[in-house]
Amino acid sequence: MMKAGSNVSRARRRRKETLTGLLFVAPALVGFLVFYLLPTLRAIQISLTDWNLMRAPKFVGFANYTKLLGDENFWHSAWVTFAYVLYNIPIQTALGLLLAVLSDRLARAVSLRAVIIAPYLISNVVAALVWLMMLDPILGLVNGFLEIVGIGRQGFLASPDQAMVSVAAISTWRHTGLTALLFYAGLQAIPRHLYEAARLEGAGEWTMFHRITLPLLRPVLAFVLVTSLIGSFQVFDVIAVATAGGPSNSTRVILWYIYENAFKFNKMGYASAISVVLFVTLILVTLLQMRLLKADQSDLT
């Protein structure tokens, strides 16, 4: 039998818990509303205006979006970004996987993984500057080496043909360790007895990799591909420091194009429209990738 008094006190306690809970969440909620939710909505709103921050914004409907469709520079930057992703992702993923499998088999000391992750823990800015030095035509070690072996000095970041590949190589240098680390964690979840059984049946390293490791690593692979792809589409820091979008706009990726429009030409509306298009594209790419890789299913059942 329930007494009326305990009902009242329970309701009071619940009300108190609600109030305390909201108080606890309040500062983070303010941060979320002011710096995440509101700006997302505002970005969409600004994208429908013509606004240089000097005068009041003028509503122009979807004009920025229709302009975008015919903007050669936009399509060029989309293409450049796509090329960057193509250079960066497959090599970085393959190298990361190789590194993870090797350290899982041969060297499981945490110190090795700490060394491998070092390039990721220094900033993009430092990575870009150090590689500017490494790839410099005169004092760079890479060109010094290429000259000794008889290939000859290359322009790298200063060459319109090689700049984007060079930026991708810098990103690969910085991120391969992290990719390897995530794969390494995934490998730890694969039961060892599967390998022992396969070995008893005479399977070689390649067969085991192909038949056991790769299928069971698929959820991790999906996670790594989704996150690194999203990151790649937003490459900015290295470009800002190493090439500033050049030479001859050969590294003017989407984010650099947005940055130029917003902060150099003060076209806030147009820049916001591009950023909204990028946002929608990223969501679509993510959904597509999850679907293709069946990210939510594991073969380990």
Partner: peptide, 8 residues
């Protein structure tokens, strides 16, 4: 994406 947030 950070760029969507950074302008506003």
């Amino acid at each position: 994406p950070s760029m969507v947030l950074f302008i506003p």
